[in-house]
Amino acid sequence: MFTAGPPGAPARPARLVSAHARVFAETSPTALDPALRPFLADLVRPYGNALREDLLTEGVGHSFGEMAEAMLPAVVGPDEPVDLLVLAFAMHDLRLGRATACYLSDQCPGAPMAFAVCDQGSGAAFTALRLTESYLGSGACERALVVVVEQSALHYEPGEPAPIPDRHTGVVLRLERTGSPVAVGQHTGVDAQRVTQLLRDDVARLGRRATVVASARLAEAAPGVADVVADAGQPYTGIWCELAGGGHEGMVLVADYEPSLGLLCTSTVDFSGNDHSAVDSAAVAVA
Rank of each mutant, 00 (worst) to 15 (best):
A214M: 05
G245H: 05
S260H: 14
A244H: 05
A221Y: 01
T266Q: 08
P259W: 14
L199E: 00
S180R: 13
A216G: 08
T211H: 09
G250W: 13
L199T: 00
A244N: 10
D191Y: 07
T188R: 15
Q193M: 13
L243W: 04
A221R: 06
L218S: 01
S180Q: 12
T237D: 03
D256Y: 04
G185E: 10
G262D: 11
S215P: 07
A255I: 03
A210Q: 06
E220A: 15
E249A: 14
S260N: 14
Q193L: 12
E258M: 07
L199V: 03
S267F: 03
T211Y: 11
A222V: 04
G247M: 10
R208S: 14
W240G: 00
R209S: 14
L206N: 03
L263H: 11
A221C: 13
E258G: 06
V213Y: 00
T196R: 14
R205P: 03
A210M: 07
D231W: 07
L243K: 05
T266N: 05
T237M: 05
M251I: 07
L199G: 00
R217Q: 13
Q234S: 09
T266A: 08
S180L: 12
V225I: 14
T188E: 12
A204L: 14
G247A: 12
A255C: 10
L253W: 02
G185R: 13
L206F: 09
I239E: 01
L264A: 05
G247V: 13
C265K: 02
E220C: 07
V203N: 04
S267T: 15
E242I: 06
